[in-house]
Design a protein around this nucleic acid. Sequence first.
DNA 1: GTCTATATAGCGATAGAC
DNA 2: GTCTATCGCTATATAGAC
Lengths: 188, 188
Amino acid sequence: MTDLRRAGKRERLIAAARTLFHEQGVHVTTLAEVAQRGDVPVGNVYYYFKTKEELVRAVVDEYVGQAEALLAGFDTLRTPAARLKGLTRGWLDVADTVADHGCPVGGLCAELNRCDGALRGAGVEIFGRISAWVEAQFRQLGRRDARDLAMALLSGIQGSALLANTFSDATIMSRQARYLERWIDSLA
Amino acid sequence: MTDLRRAGKRERLIAAARTLFHEQGVHVTTLAEVAQRGDVPVGNVYYYFKTKEELVRAVVDEYVGQAEALLAGFDTLRTPAARLKGLTRGWLDVADTVADHGCPVGGLCAELNRCDGALRGAGVEIFGRISAWVEAQFRQLGRRDARDLAMALLSGIQGSALLANTFSDATIMSRQARYLERWIDSLA
DNA sequence: GTCTATATAGCGATAGAC
DNA sequence: GTCTATCGCTATATAGAC
C-alpha cells in the first residue's frame, strides 16, 4: 500500500511534468505547477526527486521507454516499408497536438541542448534509438545510404512539426506525413 | 554624436541578445548577460527597451530583415532551381554553428510558441516570408503543389538542424543539404 | 542620457515538525 | 512518508542621483 501510493505519486509527477514540459518548456515550468497538476503537495516533490534535473531525467527515461514500445509495436508489420510508413502515419493522429505545442521530444531535445549541466545531450538517448531503428529498416530495404535516408525521414517529420507549430496549422504536419509515405514507397 | 551612440548601443544590445538567445534560449538569458555582452551598463538596458519582451521583439524584427536581405540576394540567380539551391547550400556554411546550438530562427520560434504573451506566434513573421519566397520559386517551376514542396524543403532543413544539434554532428546538416539540392534538381 | 541602488516577486531547495 | 515554513538566490523592473 505504501509502496503503491509512492509509485502512484512518482508516476503522476512524471506524467504531469511531461505534459507541462511539452506545453510550456522545461525552464518555464515550476515544480509548484508540476506538483499541482500531479495532485501532490508542493513540498513533497523533493521526496521523490532530489532536484528538478532529476525530474527532467525521469521524463527523458519515460520517453525512451515510450519510443522503444512504439517501435516494438511496428515490428509486427511484415515489410520494412510498412514499418516505416507505420511510424510516419502515426503523426497523423497527433498532428493537432503537435501544431499546438510542437513535437514533445523534439522540443525537449532542443531545450536540453541549449543549457549546460548533466542533461546536455540527453536527447540522444531518445532520438538515437529511433534513428537506429529507422536506419535498420532502410538497410533491410537494401539501401547503402540507410543512415542518410533515416536522417532525411526524421528531418522531414521533425521539421514539419516545427513548421506546423510555428504556423499553428496541423495540415502542414499531416500533408507532410503523407508526402513522406509516398517517398518511402518510391524507395522500396 | 548623441544619437549615434544611442543607435550603437541599441544595436549592440540587439546583437548581443540575438547571440545569447541562440546559444542558450530566451528564457535562460538574463538582461544582465545581454548588457554585459553588449558592453552596456546593466541598468541602462531599460532606457532602450522598456521590457525584456520588447528586446525579444527587436530580435525578431532583426531576423525578419536578415531573411529579406538573404532572399533578395538569391533573386539575382537566373533560375528558380538555382535560387532554391542557393538557399539550401547556404546551410553548409553554418552547419557547425547549427550543430552546436540549433537553427537560431527555428529555436526562437519553438520557444516563442510555447509561452503566452504578445510574442506567441511571432515566428510566423520570419518563417512566413521565407516560406512564401520558397513557394514562389516552386510555382515558377510550374509546380501546382508549390506550397507542399516549400514545406517539404523547409522541413528537411529545419529537421536536419534539430537532429544535427541533438547528435552534435554537423555532417547530418550538410549531408541533408546536399540531399535536398539533388531533390530540387529532380523536380526542376 | 547615463548609471546605481533597490524594490518586488518568484524560484529551487532545505529544515524540521508531524 | 507527509507536509509546512522558510531560507537564499536571482530575475525583472523602477526610482532617482548625476
